[in-house]
Computed example of a mutant assay.
Amino acid sequence: MTEPHLIDGADDSAGAGPAADPRDWVLPRAVSVSDLGPLAEPISEHNGQAIAVRPLTNHPGWLAKLYRPDQHPEDAHRLDQLISAPDTLSESDRTVLYAGTCWPASRIHEPGNPAVGCVIPMAPEQYRCELRRGEFSDRRFVEIDWLAKSDESIRGVGLPPPGFAGRLAACIELTDLAAILERLGLVYSDWSFSNAFWSPDQRSVYLIDVDGCQPKKMPDLHQPNWADPLTPAGTDADEYTDSYRLGLLVAKCLTGRRDASAFHTIAASHWRNQPAVSEVLLDMLLATDRERRPSAAQLNQALNSGPYLRTAPRPTRTELPPLPPQPTQAPIRQTPAETHKPVKEPQSAPSKAPDPGSQVGVGWILVIVIAVILLFVIASNH
Rank of each mutant, 00 (worst) to 15 (best):
E3K: 08
D8G: 13
A14F: 10
D21G: 12
P28F: 08
A30I: 02
D35R: 14
L36V: 13
L36G: 05
G37N: 02
N47K: 14
G48R: 11
P60W: 07
G61M: 07
A64N: 15
P69F: 07
D70N: 11
D80G: 01
P86Y: 12
D87Y: 11
L89R: 04
S90P: 12
L97Q: 01
T101Y: 09
W103E: 08
A105Y: 09
N113P: 00
G117P: 15
P121A: 07
M122H: 03
A123G: 05
P124W: 12
R128Y: 09
S137W: 05
F141D: 04
L168N: 06
T175P: 11
D176L: 10
A179F: 03
R183A: 13
R183P: 08
Y188P: 01
R203Y: 06
S204W: 01
V205W: 07
D211A: 14
L221Y: 01
L221M: 00
N225Y: 10
P229V: 12
P229M: 10
D238P: 03
S243L: 07
C253H: 01
T255N: 02
R257P: 01
D259K: 04
S269G: 06
R272F: 09
N273D: 15
P275L: 01
S278M: 12
S278T: 13
L286P: 09
Q298N: 05
L309F: 08
P313N: 04
P313K: 05
R317E: 11
L320C: 12
Q326L: 04
E338R: 13
V343S: 08
Q347K: 14
Q347Y: 06
S351H: 12
P354W: 08
W364M: 11
V369M: 14
F376R: 01
I378Q: 11
